[in-house]
Design a protein around this nucleic acid. Structure first.
Length: 308
DNA sequence: AAGACGAAAGTGGTTGA
DNA sequence: TCAACAACTTTCGTCTT
């Protein structure tokens, strides 16, 4: 990506630009000489909406950010900070300070300053942070925000860390929107472990009555494929293999990521775009052994001919 | 030397009594 | 709550390219 190349030259470091690699997964720039993580600069997908009708334009083109479920108060207000400091961080003079206390009081009165609000404010921060690192689309974020809101309203967050419930909401949103992210990927960006997030995830589906479509290995292919820099043809091939496997009911109970990995491995062999099992396994978040096992199964059951 | 393969033991999560 | 169980991981030795 051109953009990333540009960023490399702007990073404050002694590393030569061509020694820097970009980890698209984490959104980090890493220096290959020192192993140092230089900066986690991510493209923030800002307001992006279009007006289709004149009325819409009228309504939407007024000042202020877009309405969004990912901001706790839907992005409508400015918050006066509780610290008695000005923008540069200096203490305010006593007189000014009193003034601000007055302002703040009014602001608090003018909003419903419930615990729910405060919880949401913090949660939406977390959500944005994690979603940024996972490079999730706006649609997924909105979905996650809505799910989280419901969870708060149902009192499901009490006794659990905000972060883990947020992470679980994101996971649910990903599943619903068919954006494959594994629990491991999500937990890698949080302080909580996978187990806790999985527990929250189960709670969410149960309590909110959410029906989650079964994870489909095919959904993993485009992303894994692009990380491996495979051609579209190879990805198509991998998808076909999964389809065949599904018809033969070979997919039940198997880790979808492992299946996708195996299908990709086979496709690379068939299309002569060889990748090692290790490369694929790393990206899929499974081990070589699993790739191998699935690969063996698939080849056998589908009677595939693997060229030398 | 790196990759592929497979056996064997270990791990974490689910299920069912 | 516990044990059985399936899928997956870890580890390691061997074979292949």
């Amino acid at each position: 990506m051109v953009l990333e190349e540009e960023v490399k030259t702007q990073l404050e470091t002694d590393c030569p630009p061509d020694a820097i690699i970009f980890d698209a997964e984490k959104g980090e720039y890493i220096c290959t000489t020192t192993g140092e993580v230089l900066e986690s600069r991510l493209i923030n997908q800002g307001p992006e909406w279009r007006a289709f009708t004149p009325e819409e334009k009228e309504r939407r083109s007024r000042v202020g950010g877009p309405l969004s479920a990912t901001v706790h108060d839907r992005g409508l207000t400015t918050v006066i900070d509780w610290r008695d400091r000005d923008a540069s961080g200096k203490k305010l003079e006593p007189k000014k300070r009193l003034e601000f206390i007055r302002y703040r009081k009014w602001q608090i009165r003018s909003r419903i300053q419930s615990s729910v609000d405060r919880n949401l404010a913090q949660a939406m921060n977390e959500l944005d942070r994690i979603a940024n690192q996972l490079r999730l689309t706006r649609a997924v974020r909105e979905e996650a925000a809505i799910i989280y809101r419901k969870a708060v309203e149902k009192g499901l967050v009490r006794g659990r860390s905000i972060e883990s419930v947020v992470a679980a909401s994101i996971y649910v949103a990903c599943r619903l929107k068919r954006v494959p992210r594994t629990l491991d990927e999500i937990s890698a960006h949080t302080k909580t472990n996978r187990k806790e997030i999985a527990r929250c995830y189960r709670l969410l589906i149960k309590e909110l009555g959410i029906k989650v479509p079964l994870a489909n290995p095919i959904d993993y292919i485009p992303r894994m494929g692009s990380l491996l820099e495979l051609s579209g043809k190879t990805m198509k091939r991998a998808a076909d293999i999964i389809k065949m496997a599904k018809q033969k009911a070979l997919t039940a109970g198997k880790d979808p990521a492992g299946l996708a990995a195996a299908a990709i491995y086979i496709a690379t062999l068939l299309e002569n775009e060889r990748r090692t099992q290790k490369e694929i396994a790393n990206i899929a978040g499974v081990t070589e052994v699993t790739v191998r096992n699935r690969y063996k199964e698939l080849v056998k059951q589908l009677n595939l001919e693997i060229p030398e």
